[in-house]
């Protein structure tokens, strides 16, 4: 189950995400994520992937179901990695577009004061979503830079 603190992080602060998959030959591949949401039971997440990052995604997920999603709040660098198992994918709906738009606005608002990039480049960094992928979250790792980076949070490490 995704802890409430991390749900709040995802819903209120995080502004960048990336998903990793791998093919049948264990070759890794990456895909930008435009948005995310947590399932009502806090055991699943849905990630929204733009068109330019769909290459190999569905094929790999159908083959082995393995995925890892890193979500970061820039510039604080608070970062978590969610590892899990693919459930299904579907086309985007109106609500998905609104989620990605909210994250785009959050990203631009946060980055604008410290970026030298043109305004349109900041907006274009979060592309409109083309596909929604739901997965079951099995493990959560802290990835915030520092001594605790890599610590497994869920399920907790015993001892």
């Amino acid at each position: 189950m995704i802890p409430g603190k991390i749900v709040r992080f995802l819903e209120q602060y995080a502004n960048v995400a990336f998903v990793g998959t791998r093919d049948r030959d264990l070759v890794p591949f990456g895909h930008r994520v435009s948005g995310w949401s947590v399932g009502a039971d806090q055991r699943t997440m849905t990630i929204l992937v733009p068109d330019e990052f769909l290459q190999r995604l569905v094929e790999s997920l159908r083959h082995n179901g393995e995925l890892a999603v890193t979500v970061e709040a820039f510039p604080s660098h608070e970062t978590y990695q969610f590892k899990g198992s693919y459930r299904h994918h579907r086309g985007v709906q109106d609500g998905d577009v609104e989620i990605a738009d909210r994250i785009r606005r959050r990203f631009v608002k946060t980055i604008r004061p410290m970026s030298h990039e043109p305004e349109d480049a900041l907006h274009a960094f979060v592309s409109p979503p083309a596909l929604a992928v739901e997965f079951e979250v099995l493990e959560i790792y802290l990835q915030t830079p520092g001594p605790g980076a890599g610590t497994r949070l869920i399920p907790p490490v015993e001892g």
Binding site: F18, G20, P28, F29, G30, E66, T70, Q81, K83, Q143
Partner: peptide, 16 residues
Amino acid sequence: AAMVTCSADGKPNTTV
């Protein structure tokens, strides 16, 4: 940048 690797037992890992 974002980086993806994969363990020998097939678990992908992503990091910034």
